[in-house]
Design a protein around this nucleic acid. Structure first.
Length: 309
DNA sequence: CGGAGTAAAAGGCACTT
DNA sequence: AAGTGACTTTTACTCCG
């Protein structure tokens, strides 16, 4: 059921196992991070694919379309149907009373439905704010909303800050779609702070049973490289190093940003475009120590001979 | 200053009680 | 729900060239 979420776009035939195929946003092509081969060029980002996971959701989906921009909450339907007496004060006979209570229940449902709608609308506003502030692709809004909606339906938002839950949904959406953003990037925009966002995120992952892929370290490379004005050659070499590193199982459990930083440090060194560990650490959002540790490990385990500068 | 290294604190995760 | 252990990152420091 939930694996469906990870079922991304279909790709052309290739020896590449699909889980290693990533979309290089800069170049607009799919590459296999296992072999480095370009899988398919000129692919249009198919954007979000709404999928219905359950029959209920399928029916719900149909009325999800436009109402988010709608600002008519109840169409004036929300009069309370409360009395057991009619307009002239007489008691109602049983059959009518039954009908009245049916209406009352219906009305209660409507009221609940509109409060949910309001909540969802607020979430859309927050999520859009994060996506805009972080320069994320617009399609993240849909993915994040899908997650937020499911969380809301499970009652996970109640008693927690909507803002933090929305931020957590955005982070989860980035992870699912392999977009390299740290939880801190997003948490910076949230009043509640990093800890709260992280807690909401873990709650969402656990309760919705999302299987979170780790973002491929290769995806962090182009961001860091361009921040440091390094050449495309460095970028390619760093990616190569990371692909090798994964073959040897060096990437599991490590911060992908730290790995990318170390690979870039090595690549830049090799190609005579040296940057200090400090610069690279800052660009990658990790500490120098992490760069050093990953760098040490990569050089050692990949037998990379370093130029004696 | 840049880099190497380290101990200790902190954080996150799986697993247990 | 709290506790534990193995593991990674961060913090804060020392030492070297």
């Amino acid at each position: 059921m939930e694996e469906e979420i990870l079922n991304e776009e279909k790709h052309g035939q290739s020896e590449c196992p699909p889980e290693y195929i990533v979309f290089d946003e800069e170049r607009g092509e799919y590459i296999c991070t296992l072999t480095g081969e370009v899988v398919e060029e000129k692919v249009i980002d198919s954007g979000p694919e709404w999928r219905a996971y359950t029959p209920e959701e399928k029916t719900r989906r149909s009325r999800v379309g436009s109402p988010l921009t709608h600002t008519l909450p109840d169409y004036g339907l929300l009069t309370t149907i409360s009395s057991y007496r009619d307009a002239s004060g007489r008691k109602l006979e049983a059959r009518v009373r039954l009908e009245a209570s049916r209406l009352r229940r219906l009305q209660a449902k409507l009221r609940a439905a509109t409060s949910i709608e309001k909540n969802i609308e607020q979430a859309v506003r927050e999520i859009t704010r994060f996506v805009d502030a972080l320069n994320l692709p617009r399609s993240i809004i849909d993915t994040a909303m899908m997650i937020y909606r499911q969380a809301a339906e499970k009652g996970l938002v109640r008693g927690r800050s909507l803002e933090s839950m929305a931020a957590a949904a955005v982070y989860a959406a980035c992870r699912i779609r392999g977009i390299p953003r740290s939880i801190d990037d997003i948490a910076e925009l949230v009043k509640g702070g990093r800890k709260e966002v992280a807690r909401c995120y873990r709650l969402i992952v656990r309760e919705l049973k999302l299987r979170m892929p780790i973002v491929d370290p290769v995806r962090y490379v182009s961001r860091i490289v361009s921040a440091l004005r390094l050449s495309p050659a460095v970028e390619r070499r760093a990616a190569e190093i990371l692909i090798q590193a994964r073959r040897l199982g060096l990437t599991a459990g490590k911060d992908p940003a730290g790995l990318a930083a170390a690979a870039i440090y090595i690549a830049a060194l090799e190609l005579g475009e040296r940057r200090t560990q400090k610069e690279i650490a800052a660009a990658a959002g990790v500490t120098e120590v992490t760069v050093r540790n990953r760098y040490k490990e990569l050089v050692q385990k990949l037998n990379i001979p370093l130029p004696a500068q």
